[in-house]
Design a binder for these strands. Structure first.
Lengths: 235, 235
DNA sequence: CACTGTCTGTGACACGCTTCACAAACTTAC
DNA sequence: GTAAGTTTGTGAAGCGTGTCACAGACAGTG
């Protein structure tokens, strides 16, 4: 992956790296990019202009080598002897992930969980906007929630096309989750954030991410037991 | 995915495998065990008595070889020519993870998110009970929530010892998350489920799991863009 | 009982990711 | 300007995990 190091640019600011992403980027690397962005944003807020892979590593509990290797998949963002320009690197990574744009999303299921999701203030500043909310329960239709109105599942495809929605957030009970996911895929949604405790089946060109606290807890207990931590024996 | 199920005898009962766990089990394998348990429970509900690694694989979108290899780290649970006794295997895996016991947990932060967590009906059937809820906001103290009373952070250590709590669920704003986690660790909690969008620092003998929907979405967009899915350009 | 078909458990191999180590590039100090 | 110190980018080695392939065990059939 040779890239032109344009010389004589005395500043850390680099020329536009075209991000062509040769599709050879490991998935794990892509999963880590958002963490880098978050750390860089944090550094930016504390007025840091430049950061080394070493310092980023201590901040994120990773080895400097891994950070450098990860970034090298996308370009040459740093400068020897100095490090990375914080703002520049963050902007580059955001562009690589498409986070410099606004992603409209829809929510399916406005129960207790769905309500918490739609009111969660953490999505909007990152460029994710829930612009529509659906529910199969007729008594929920028409209810206002976080500034938007709950509408019927019948209007799913129409609404998704209208708002150009490419991300669906699934917050329905387990039994309805797979059917809802199928509907979303059929309607053209290619990214799904699933909160239901199931192992969903999606076509290969669809990206799915599962949020499953119970799974996290259930693998945690294995290590707790090994460490001699004892739970409460029932009885 | 259909399994032959009923055999005449049902004499698949196996000898007691001592589970000594030689600490050589890869972490990824432990992370998958809960998924196996969930699938087995599902099979049990649909009256399946026996399942092969092949059928489990199609159910979970995994290769049969991986399932067999994973299980082989803990013992020999299957029978050649037949498969695995569903109930037996599930019970064994639950015991390995310590899920045959009851794990008391505490919640820190009873905002919108904390409220949704404490009312989430999915924890209790899996053996996780939120037995105490804390908040630093004085106006929240004393409020009843999901059957339990919100108490002050001052009572953290005392309460954790009293109820023998080994798991802490952190649902506080980002800036307070690390301090709260430090407090939990100091109080003796060795397992932490963190909902705050940060990269927490914990001692090596502490198990931490992060629930971070924003990170999931931010890596999703990379693939959506590659597939030519276009978000809404702001403007 | 023998013979055919099925499925597990596992050593060996293959692959992908992490870590290492170093040349090259840049900074700082004098 | 020179020398010493710092940090990146990256081939190559190392390591952990997934996959393969097959011997062995069991079921089913007649």
């Amino acid at each position: 992956m040779k890239r032109v190091t344009d010389s004589a640019s005395g500043d850390l600011t680099m020329t536009q790296n075209e991000v062509l992403t040769p599709a050879m980027v490991p998935d794990v690397v892509v999963l880590r990019l958002p963490m880098y962005i978050r750390a860089l944003t944090q550094l930016l807020e504390s007025r840091s202009m430049v950061v080394s892979s070493h310092d980023l590593g201590t901040l994120l509990q990773m080895t400097p080598a891994q950070i450098r290797k990860d970034l090298s998949y996308f370009g040459r963002f740093g400068k020897q002897g100095k490090g990375y320009d914080v703002k520049f690197l963050r902007d580059e990574l955001q562009q690589i992930l498409g986070l410099d744009q606004n992603w409209p999303a829809c929510l399916i299921g406005v129960g207790r969980l769905g309500e918490a999701i739609i009111n969660y203030p953490g999505f909007v500043p990152e460029g994710f906007n829930v612009v529509a909310a659906f529910d199969s329960d007729a008594s929920q239709i028409g209810r206002k929630l976080g500034g938007i109105e709950v509408i019927s599942m019948d209007a799913l495809t129409k609404t998704i096309n209208e708002y150009n929605i490419s991300i669906g957030i699934v917050a329905v009970p387990s039994v309805q989750a797979q059917p809802v996911i199928d509907e979303l895929v059929l309607a053209g949604v290619r990214g799904i954030l699933n909160y239901a405790p199931i192992a969903p089946v999606v076509p290969p060109d669809t990206v799915i991410r599962n949020i499953d606290p119970v799974l996290s807890l259930q693998s945690m207990t294995f290590y707790l037991m090994k460490k001699g931590v004892n739970p409460l024996i029932p009885g």
